[in-house]
Nucleic acid binder design. Sequence first.
DNA 1: CTGAAAGCGCTAACAC
DNA 2: GTGTTAGCGCTTTCAG
Lengths: 341, 341
Amino acid sequence: MSERAERAWRPTILDVAARAGVSKSLVSRALRDAPTVSPARRAAVRQAAEELGYRPNAVARSLVQRRSHTVGVMVSDLHNLFFAEVLDGVEAVAAGHGYRVLIVTGNRDRAAEEQALETLLELRTDAVILASSRLSLRSVAAARQSVPVTLVARAARVAGVDTVTNDDGRGARLAVEHLASLGHRRIALVDGGSGPGSAARRRGYRAAMGALGLADEIGVAAGDFTDEGGYRGARSLLTGSSRPTAICAGNDLAATGVLTALAEAGLRVPADVSLVGYDNTALAALRHVSLTTIHQPRTEMGEAAMRAALRRLDGGAGRARRLVLQPSLVQRATTASPAAS
Amino acid sequence: MSERAERAWRPTILDVAARAGVSKSLVSRALRDAPTVSPARRAAVRQAAEELGYRPNAVARSLVQRRSHTVGVMVSDLHNLFFAEVLDGVEAVAAGHGYRVLIVTGNRDRAAEEQALETLLELRTDAVILASSRLSLRSVAAARQSVPVTLVARAARVAGVDTVTNDDGRGARLAVEHLASLGHRRIALVDGGSGPGSAARRRGYRAAMGALGLADEIGVAAGDFTDEGGYRGARSLLTGSSRPTAICAGNDLAATGVLTALAEAGLRVPADVSLVGYDNTALAALRHVSLTTIHQPRTEMGEAAMRAALRRLDGGAGRARRLVLQPSLVQRATTASPAAS
DNA sequence: CTGAAAGCGCTAACAC
DNA sequence: GTGTTAGCGCTTTCAG
């Protein structure tokens, strides 16, 4: 590295102007393809910029324009693939509208999430998308004072804050109905504990069982959204007097735990017990797992969130819009009719 | 929403100054805990800022200070948990040194990655960390002209660009040696194709087999880093005349494909065939999979990358540092001694 | 079509 | 201790 690299010198618009022999405003216009620039000058400016390795300073531009052409997305946990897919949707729509996406994360920690949101606000991104955060509603409302805010996968009601969620209750109902249509009656649930969406899924399960006249067959085992939780929940279900012929798991991860417990008990899937997961993660699609599960339209959620932000950015005012997307069932190899016994 | 929310008005340092009855520079100093401010004034400024909901504008600050106290990280694919863990490491170190982390992604697309890097450069982040990108070396070198750059999981040699990689060859050797120590001789490899690290793993496998006097037993099946690829690779291995007693997979995902092929062939794991994965992803830790695998110190890689960036930020000049971290073997349930036959 | 000038919100000398 | 001043790099009137 040359000495000059020690403290990087970066050419500014003024350097380009000097080299091209024009004023800095002309450079500004030429580089942004403004119409009122003569072809000759435009070429000269372009060349000078090229030779200098000039790169516009988005910070200065952002300051003067009072907009950054950027949306900030806070995701609470990059380890959860759910967010990766939501981000796919956000980025697809953003790119199509000339917006850049900046991602910050809170690593499943409340304080860190508040900090991450603060970063976005200080950076003055044009809009903020909050994906399933643990943020206090107070912080969300405060953020909304200075910027459009969209909540993803969190149904909180905050003035002026749009939300995009998934109908978890409906998803649970789809699972139960699928199982019932195969002939199952003793359909149990391994619960998701206090995880996001868990309460709605539990309610959906109970309601669906009731609607099918299976209220007496309701069986809920404690669990959480982990492999371990699913394992323990299934174990408790299997020790009971009347073993279920089908199990709904809180999510796909918990479903793999159920799979383990079933295998240990010498039960075959789906011959002896059917199993439905929730989320349709990449995990469920593995041939080794091949789990029937409930699909959430995650990418669409991201797209919808970004579109909601764009609407506000285009001056859309008014009350909060609450979009609820519908899940669907993906059938794979873990569900079948119960063994005729 | 009130009408005022239509186009958000945001208080500036001047509003705070007016309300507190002081000059704007005093506000600037008071809010940043500069020493030369009287307690009374400091309190007054704090209160005024609080009442107004004032939030410093990082854009303006960044422009005048010519530094953003921010590092940008470009990851090529958020769907790959590898990057989530690298980011954990980066963020941990960054937070401890007062830096904020901004993430951008290229969604496994070359052009999008170039664009994402460009975003970071225009944003003038103080340093840039590039995680396993498909970026042209030309772009990397160009970026280095204006900012410290660290490459993660990519061993490219670019002047002044530090790299943090993992010794993939060594990992493959660990896998082979583990299997050999259990008594296996016919140890095959389901290759990772052109995936990152794949070539080094293949070389390591061959070298280890040779060093153990098992050169004649070398068997490599084509594959890639997917479930499907592992499945096909294993199938071709099983149709051969002398079936291997142990298989090394290119990565954990491919290993699950191998698992499926093995099950279909009626082979038990590890009784009939032992299997070692690579990466030690969350997938391998699932009880249902419980895969013996090679662990890469991903979080440490992120930490090291951020530390390298900090060193440059603190004026560290000189030639590129190339850090190579060592993998380790994690034994789970898919490896055992071959059946005595 | 082009240039001069003002100013975005903030920090950092420099005076008082 | 505190206020004044001069920019940071860029866009955007406003003249010409």
